[in-house]
């Protein structure tokens, strides 16, 4: 902090960063945000695997249709995450704060604890909304660049490969958090993707 004493703007930025770190520590935001990130990015990728497989098995060979379906699904997942987490997290946080207020017999809304609690709600809601949306858009990328590849089948294949890669990456992320074997964790999440692809193939095409 001493390095920034001569520059007021940087000092303010540094102060805000310190506040954010402190709010995050008080409200335990980091751990919850990590959990939501992994869980919802996982959801996002698996849902897009569903969209990809559905379109592929149904014989859709127009990348624009897959992109539109995938994007609509991603947006819905993002909104669902954002809204759902905001509502549940704010309800839980308000209850926690009220309980703490009963213990201290004071109004804590304008204290660091109250601010940390509101900060946690916004952060967790953003993570919960953005994680599935971004993960879904990421795995759809090969379809956006469909013109670069010779066939739409290749785009499908690359998207599925990217989905599996993202799932493995999420597993590695979880493995690093747990401090256990990252490859084992990566394999666990990868298997989920493979199972959903395999099951969709086994189901075959719906009649009609």
């Amino acid at each position: 902090m001493a390095n920034f004493e001569d520059t007021p703007q940087l000092n303010i930025v540094q102060q805000r960063l310190n506040d954010v770190r402190e709010y995050s520590r008080i409200a335990g935001t980091g751990e919850i945000a990590r959990r939501y990130f992994a869980m919802n990015a996982f959801d996002g990728v698996l849902t897009i695997i569903g969209v990809l497989m559905g379109n592929f098995v149904a014989g859709v060979r127009d990348a624009a249709i897959v992109i539109n379906t995938g994007l609509a699904t991603s947006i819905a997942m993002g909104i669902s995450g954002l809204w759902g987490a905001y509502l549940t997290e704010s309800a839980e946080r308000e209850r926690d704060l009220a309980e703490l207020e009963r213990s201290t017999l004071t109004d804590l809304k304008d204290t660091k604890i109250g601010r940390a609690s509101r900060w946690a709600v916004v952060t967790v809601a953003l993570v919960d909304g953005l994680a599935p949306f971004l993960a879904a858009v990421l795995v759809l990328l090969p379809l956006f660049f469909g013109n670069w590849f010779r066939s739409v089948e290749l785009s499908y294949l690359l998207s599925l490969a990217l989905s599996l890669g993202t799932l493995f990456g999420l597993g590695v992320f979880l493995g690093r958090i747990s401090g256990r074997n990252i490859l084992v964790y990566g394999a666990r999440t990868l298997v989920a993707g493979l199972v959903s692809i395999g099951l969709r193939f086994l189901l075959g095409t719906a009649p009609g």
Partner: peptide, 15 residues
């Protein structure tokens, strides 16, 4: 300064 001390304690959730 007593008022500053109390204000800071209260800002940190204490009573």
């Amino acid at each position: 300064r007593y008022p500053d001390v109390v204000r800071l304690i209260e800002q940190n959730g204490g009573a």
